[in-house]
Simulated scan of single mutants.
Amino acid sequence: MIQPNILVFHPDYLIVEAYTKSIQRYGFKSVQAASTLEEAIKLLPGTEVILGWKFPLELLNQPIASSVRWFQSMGAGVDDLIADSSLPQDIILTRIVNQFGTYISEYVFMFLLYIAKNGSRMRQAQIERQWDPFISESLAGKTVGVAGLGSIGSEIVRKARAFDMNVHGLSVSGTNASLVDDHFSADQWNEFVKDLDYLILTLPLTDATRTIVNKDLLLAMKQNACLINVGRGALINEGDLVDVMQSGHLRAVVLDVFEIEPLPKDHAFWAIPNVYVSSHLSGPSTIDSVSNFFVENLKYYIEGQPLNGVVNRERGY
């Protein structure tokens, strides 16, 4: 088997070393590691395949990168790569797919249950040593809307069925429309959200989805509805969301992704009591899972077979 020259890039040297060793354990020996611009410049000549995160893309349209044929992102989101014109059109771009459904769906349902069962009230009663029996809500019979029915959204739908929820979905392609009770297209957002108890965003970030959740859409939701974003931060107009939450509309918001990460310490989200903030951790890219995905794609690449996770640049994901 003729092996391509592989370059692994990540700003954290320890992570690069871990990925490199993981890939080499599969029998791929022509693997080099870089964590700085200088190292990338030195190692790019002769490189055919890049496994990268926050790679200096401006290098890819220079002569030293003329041998690069394929760029595998370490993550699922590629909006930053799509937006950068430095990435030549003849380089195949792939992203990680079908790796995050379990993790992210568990994150979503942790918060759905916490909100429905009023976990904060239980915890506060314990802190105050108060005996506070109360009747909590149930997820059964509630309506959840999942915007984005790819591998992540589909797993959320599957788990929602186990909780006897009504499930609505919105997607561009309609490929998985049969998974949900009611399906809506991308021009039906207001109709989609108006009856939801919970809105879950799992969409990629494209020109069409950027700030798709704005003040008008938020106010079209029921006042006691909840919003969870595990897609991309810029799906939401954050200023509009702050205004809506401070006005008392919406019961709770759960945000794992943001326009600027890390979230600035002076951002209003930190201080709004019914906004739950987490540090982009719902769908971790583990070294083992990403390495497994990459190695499988490497085998397809060597055999001349179609790769998994190929990005359609016009579509944006």
Rank of each mutant, 00 (worst) to 15 (best):
D187W: 14
L37P: 11
A225G: 07
R25M: 02
A186W: 15
L205E: 09
S35A: 13
R69P: 05
V290G: 04
G46F: 14
Y103N: 08
G141I: 04
L7A: 05
I236L: 00
V97F: 05
S35Q: 14
V180C: 07
Y198D: 05
I236D: 00
K42G: 01
Q305I: 02
L60E: 13
L149Y: 03
N274P: 10
R123Q: 09
L149K: 06
Q130F: 07
K21I: 03
Y276K: 10
G309K: 09
P11K: 02
L37E: 14
F134M: 01
S173F: 14
F55M: 03
I92W: 09
N166H: 15
I127S: 05
G119I: 14
L241Q: 10
Y198R: 11
L298F: 10
E155M: 07
D207G: 07
T286Q: 06
R251F: 14
D266W: 12
R158T: 03
N224H: 08
S178T: 10
F100N: 02
L179W: 13
V213Q: 02
R25Q: 11
R69A: 01
Y317R: 12
E39M: 12
L179P: 08
V97D: 00
Y103K: 04
V277I: 13
P262E: 07
H10L: 04
G231F: 10
V78P: 00
S120E: 15
R123G: 01
K222I: 02
V275G: 06
P4L: 04
T94Y: 00
R121Y: 13
L199Y: 11
P284A: 11
A76N: 10
V108Y: 14
V8P: 00
L7S: 02
L298I: 04
T94I: 01
L255K: 13
L203C: 10
V31F: 08
F163G: 01
T143A: 00
I64L: 11
T20Q: 01
D187R: 15
M221C: 09
K159H: 10
N176A: 08
G174H: 15
Q62F: 08
N190G: 08
V31R: 12
Q62S: 05
K117T: 02
R161M: 06
R158V: 02
